[in-house]
Design a protein around this nucleic acid. Structure first.
Lengths: 193, 193
DNA sequence: AAAAATACGGAACAATCGTTCCTGAATTAG
DNA sequence: CTAATTCAGGAACGATTGTTCCGTATTTTT
């Protein structure tokens, strides 16, 4: 006996991700959300509670999407080193071609909110742990296959890779548009593997 | 025929750096500034104009201080590699011991504001360039002295070092308190040099 | 047809934002 | 002393913030 929802909640979340990613939490107003999601104020608050809940859900969804992508690539990979290189190259391409450089939503949120919001801190921490595991497993696989040097522990390399990934995303957010800079970093990173 | 200033403008700026660093631009209210700087609203606006100008001046001052410190250390250094290691170790210590983890003011501001504020973008860019130069000169010196591998160009290594420095500051801002994580990253970084 | 649920637009809310202004006291130099 | 300047405190500004609520139209199920 009820009317059906007219908008897709996940699609709305994707749009929320876009604008929060671009403007940050504090930089995004309720009006921004109404305009960009295409929902009325009422529907927005009925569906997602308040701004904070909407942000949290957005970040969680982003995390899931980003993790799944990397995870699948690495687990299905036959040559982990090459796959890692492809992942970094993709990050570089995105950093350069995005007319609106957004960096990484997780990094941005981490810098803006992690120390002031317990819930965000949890998400960031869980993300770091998961990514560390994913990279560690990948590196291990690569070491066993002889594609990656065994000079350093898999976990050491995983943390190192993740750190450079973060760094690159900060560079992008800062508006760096010189491809050489990114390429140099990637070159140095992979000289270790 | 005039009353003399009772507060030191630079000291006030240092306090502004503290709170902007901790809470970010959007997260810091005018009241926060009044409370933390110990100035009245009127004096604050008379002296610094508005919030944006105060922030800009704070960031510029921070940049100057941070650059001078690193610059002097590296230029006076007899063993650049060891000095670089000391700089990283210091960053790790700060990340761990700061009860209130603030990360790096430049990185934070870059992530929060660079894409929305032209002036901040300029400062960030000038900072990157200067740091790149400083690191490049240092690496060159280290390579000539035989302390640092010549396998990669000085500029490549400089950008690589800077990138990992940023990454570590993001980690700190995210609240990472596990020393192993930092140590692993530093270990991997210096395996390249 | 009736009832239940959803969406919408917009008015309205209190709170906070950054900023300006006014008053009066304090301090300095001529 | 006088004039000039700086301070603090607080009232007040309009704008914007996030949020709630109301009225109404629409769509679905019983």
């Amino acid at each position: 006996m009820a009317r059906t929802k007219e908008f897709n909640e996940d699609q709305a979340l994707d749009k929320a991700i876009e604008i929060f990613w671009h403007k940050g939490y504090n930089g995004t107003s309720a009006q921004d959300l109404v305009t960009h999601l295409g929902l009325s104020r009422s529907s927005l608050y009925d569906t997602f509670g308040d701004k904070q809940q909407l942000f949290t859900k957005s970040l969680q969804r982003y995390q899931q999407q980003a993790q799944d992508a990397v995870k699948e690539l690495l687990e299905k990979s036959e040559n982990v080193k090459e796959t890692l290189q492809a992942i970094f190259k993709q990050a570089v391409i995105e950093s350069l071609e995005d007319r609106i450089t957004k960096g990484c939503f997780m990094v941005n949120s981490s810098v803006e909110l992690a120390m002031h919001d317990e819930e965000i801190a949890k998400i960031v921490k869980s993300n770091s742990q998961t990514m560390e595991e994913v990279f560690t497993n990948a590196v291990q696989k690569g070491q066993e296959a002889g594609h990656i040097s065994k000079q350093l522990d898999a976990k050491v390399l995983a943390r190192f890779i993740f750190n450079n990934y973060s760094g690159i995303r900060v560079l992008a957010r800062a508006g760096e548009r010189n491809k050489e800079v990114y390429d140099d970093i990637v070159k140095a990173v992979f000289s270790v593997l």
